[in-house]
Design a binder for these strands. Structure first.
Lengths: 156, 156
DNA sequence: TATTGTTATACTCTATAACTATA
DNA sequence: TATAGTTATAGAGTATAACAATA
């Protein structure tokens, strides 16, 4: 028998190769999760100098696009629980990137805005985030990136 | 002036409506994350009777598809850190769904297999997981489901 | 020396509940 | 009564480091 004979599946295995996924192959959630984890890791690594995490970044962008809105409106938009958002906003306030102003209409709520320092930080952050996005597009291929973006954005 | 006059963007806002996403619109990771979170929540809710989380389910499926493999091989396949996987496997062992056998080849590693009880549980779990998947497909539309699945699976 | 599995710690994020102050 | 925001706690997942046993 030749050295390159047909070997059984067990013998055949490259010890470092990934295994069969089995039924997981039929679950979209698994594949979504896998790519999302890659993307978030790359995002965090790319923005490590600024110490900004994806959730913080999303909050900064939504405040920038909707100045003066309340915490509950931000949380509703991004699906962030109000308790979690309250703590995150305190951190961003400690960093002098946002400020809470009294809302004219409702004494219970705050009007959130970026500070001048926050605007400056966001400019740097956005530049790094673009680099991350370019890396993601390269990782999965520009065509696939565009397909996924269209499919997911059209839905959302 | 009429009551239905053209109002400014600020006045116009439905107080419960989501805000503008701003720069977030250009980030695939955000949209991936949003759908993935929906999917995992639905998965957890659908399988709440079995108390199985997505990561546990993925481990059970990969063991079922690759009986006798080691923890490191499972972890490598699913991108689960070995420390995390060790604890998860102890939980699954406590539930009598998997067992660790001595590996013939390497005394350091375990050969993981489903128990008979584990096979039975996985049958129930898989049936529920199908219901979840059907719900996900309905949520985003069957066409979009197929597009995303193709795009993501081809890549992986 | 490197790898397999284990234990432990710290941090992020999610999920709740309880509380206050307003509406 | 309901809503906005706050504080606290518990659980899951991620990231590390250190360790024993084995390769």
């Amino acid at each position: 028998m030749r050295a390159e004979r047909k070997r059984s599946a067990l013998e055949d295995a490259d010890p470092a190769a990934p295994l069969r996924l089995g039924g997981l192959e039929n679950h979209l959630g698994y594949f979504l999760r896998r790519l999302q984890v890659w993307a978030f890791r790359d995002f965090i690594a790319t923005l490590s100098d600024m110490h900004v995490r994806p959730a913080q970044y999303s909050v900064l962008l939504v405040i920038a696009a909707n100045p003066g809105q309340s915490q509950s409106a931000i949380g509703r938009t991004l699906n962030i629980e109000r308790a979690r958002l309250a703590r995150m906003l305190h951190e961003l306030e400690d960093r002098r990137w946002i400020s809470r102003r009294a809302s004219g209409r409702d004494a219970r709520s705050h009007a959130l805005v970026l500070t001048a320092e926050g605007e400056k930080a966001l400019a740097k952050i956005t530049a790094l985030a673009q680099k991350h996005e370019a890396r993601l597009a390269e990782y999965i291929g520009r065509k696939r990136w565009a397909e996924l973006m269209k499919s997911l954005r059209d839905f959302g």
